[in-house]
Design a protein around this nucleic acid. Structure first.
Lengths: 215, 215
DNA sequence: TAGATTGTTAATCGATTAACAATC
DNA sequence: TAGATTGTTAATCGATTAACAATC
């Protein structure tokens, strides 16, 4: 199930859902692929194709898709209903920012605790999430059967900590460090890479400025 | 110039550069596309194609590319040498984490100051970056001719702040808020979208777990 | 009924991969 | 010299777009 859905489709899914929540708040009952495409700057074709992968209920010719049905189908598809537990490792500024980020709950992610080696912050709470010593990490992962870890340690400790996580049974690592980490094939890694993002933004900016200079 | 280079290529460029720095530290003088591809889990073909877009000096058959030449070419290509100034708007935990992130300097981005509306933190410094009142934002952008803004305000203020930034002359917005912002066509926007990233990570995890259950 | 919109199939587009002559 | 590796061209692959019959 879902095996054949492309990464790009998954990327776009949260955008549809967000738009649908807004439409629902406005009282809209139905929405067409044309409308969704306009809001999100996509084509109706790609919207129809994406939605066909997630939804059980068909849309109705002429009226479009039921907003409620679509919300339910996408929430189910993205797993927003059955929250998954996660640990966060490294409670510096970025780590604490993510610990305190309330949006994750909406996305079906429940951070149970932050872990750190610094005695000064161990025992504190950030937005009601406790900060525990790294020594308790492995036990917590195994006891609670946690599959997802958010990695926000300093770059130089990223690989060592990734090794610990993998050994403890973690199966997906969301890597916010600038370091590249290597893990076995059967572990999912998603890199939140500032350098890459900035390179793309700079390229876009350069292109825009060039275009203007040519005119 | 560079107009025809794809987004994907830009995405991969910082990875090459990072690997090259490491190779240089190890004392390597030359590197082949095969080696770079192995380290970064790419194919030699794509490495050769990517590098051909950035470099001036050709590689040498049999020996590969000069590490030093390649570093210089990629730094130039990515603009790491001539740092660009940026402002950061919204100095909550995430904003402060980014203000204190020393890596940006390496990537050619110089955050000149953070801006916020909260009197309690205005006047403070985060890693030697001053936090200034939002009232001074427009003046700073225009006076220093700043083109890039990092947006880390709460989601509900994202659009209003984006409007202010565009009016002040900003041409590229790095959007870390969960909100979707609309700006004119001639403004570059890069969304650092947690929901999208998490959706992709979850999909990868699900696929991995499914594969195992099938066996 | 007429026509807007669906789901789906076929055509297009662009990026990746494979192949290979040139060459150090 | 022999062969590893380059730059580049052609083939493949996959995603997006366009087209269209079905239909409410």
């Amino acid at each position: 199930m879902y095996g054949e859905v492309s990464i790009q489709t998954f990327h776009r899914m949260p955008g549809y859902l967000k738009t649908l929540y807004e439409l629902k708040k406005e009282g809209r009952e139905f929405v067409s692929s044309v409308t969704l495409a306009e809001v999100l700057k996509l084509t109706p074709s790609i919207v129809k194709k994406d939605l066909s992968q997630a939804k059980v209920q068909d849309g109705k010719p002429k009226v479009g898709y039921s907003v409620d049905d679509l919300i339910r189908a996408l929430e189910e598809f993205l797993g927003y209903n059955n929250a998954k537990d996660a640990v966060l490792v490294g409670c510096g500024k970025l780590g604490q920012a993510l610990l305190g980020y309330t949006g994750f709950a909406d996305y079906g992610l429940n951070i149970i605790a932050g872990f750190d080696i610094d005695d000064k912050i161990i025992g504190e709470k950030v937005h009601s999430k406790p900060i525990l010593p790294t020594g308790k990490l492995e036990g917590a992962i195994q006891k609670l059967d946690i599959k997802i870890a958010i990695l926000t340690v300093p770059g130089e400790h990223a690989q060592a900590m990734a090794d610990v996580l993998v050994r403890a049974g973690i199966r997906a690592i969301w890597n916010f460090t600038p370091a590249h980490i290597s893990v076995p094939d059967n572990i999912a890694v998603r890199n939140e890479n500032m350098a890459s993002s900035l390179a793309v933004l700079s390229a876009q900016l350069r292109e825009i400025l060039n275009k203007e200079n040519k005119q």
